[in-house]
Computed example of a mutant assay.
Amino acid sequence: MTRRLTVLAGPTAVGKGTVAAWVREHHPEVWLSVSATTRPPRPGEQDGVHYHFVSGDQFADMVRRGEMLEWAVVHGRASYGTPRAAVEQALDQGLMPLLEIDLQGARQVRASMPEAYFVFLAPPSWDELVHRLEGRGTESAEERAVRLETAKVEMAAQEEFDAVVVNDDIRRAAEELVSLMGSH
């Protein structure tokens, strides 16, 4: 069976990382892409596990050589991107590759790999998304307001995706995602 890359995207604070982590822990048959970034590692992060930590020059060279499936500068600071070779290698090995990224990245992947399967992770409601963002306590009130404005735009993009999974329960959403991956 030929595998396709599955792209998981959705608005800020919807739980993309949490769902992807659950999949990583419970579904070894799913290969999760490791992004490259120019930001320094946070405490506990390991190079090659959480991210590939590279210099700004290294990242720029990777972009210039066409080695990134998608990439962006986030919050005007650090660059993040998906190394193309690792995704292609996972596909060649018949693995079930999963890429957890933002809407901008998903659109770049659609342009360069339109055969991929695109899944939008949605919150159960707008109020729940606001609650989750506020509950994280990691952003200032100003940053939360900016993220919520962005989330409105991101929520409107659901129609661009092949499927929508509602993240009302992490385990259930992750299992639905894996089920969709296996059927496509």
Rank of each mutant, 00 (worst) to 15 (best):
M1N: 01
M1Q: 10
R3W: 08
L5V: 08
T6K: 03
A9E: 08
G10C: 06
T12R: 08
V14D: 01
G15W: 07
T18A: 04
V19G: 03
P28H: 10
V30I: 14
V30Y: 01
V34I: 15
V34C: 08
A36T: 07
P40R: 14
P41S: 10
R42S: 12
D47P: 00
G48I: 10
Y51R: 04
Y51W: 14
Y51G: 01
Y51E: 03
S55A: 06
G56A: 12
Q58C: 09
M62Q: 15
R65P: 07
M68R: 05
M68N: 08
M68H: 06
E70Y: 05
E70A: 11
V73E: 12
V74M: 03
G76W: 03
A78C: 05
S79Y: 13
S79C: 13
Y80K: 08
Y80E: 09
G81W: 13
T82I: 15
P83H: 14
R84E: 14
V87L: 10
V87H: 04
V87M: 06
Q89F: 02
D92R: 13
M96P: 00
M96C: 08
L98D: 08
Q104G: 12
G105W: 04
G105M: 06
Q108S: 09
V109H: 09
R110S: 15
A111C: 06
A111W: 06
P114L: 13
E115T: 12
V119N: 03
V119M: 01
F120C: 04
L121C: 01
A122Y: 03
P124Y: 01
D127A: 15
E128Q: 13
V130N: 06
V130F: 08
L133N: 13
E134F: 05
G135L: 06
R136L: 07
G137P: 00
T138Y: 09
R144S: 00
R144K: 12
R147C: 00
A151C: 11
V153I: 14
M155A: 09
A156G: 09
A156C: 07
Q158N: 00
E160S: 07
E160M: 09
D162H: 11
V164C: 09
N167Y: 11
N167D: 08
D169C: 13
I170T: 15
R171Y: 03
A173W: 04
A174H: 03
E175D: 15
V178T: 03
S179R: 14
S179T: 14
G182F: 02
H184Y: 13
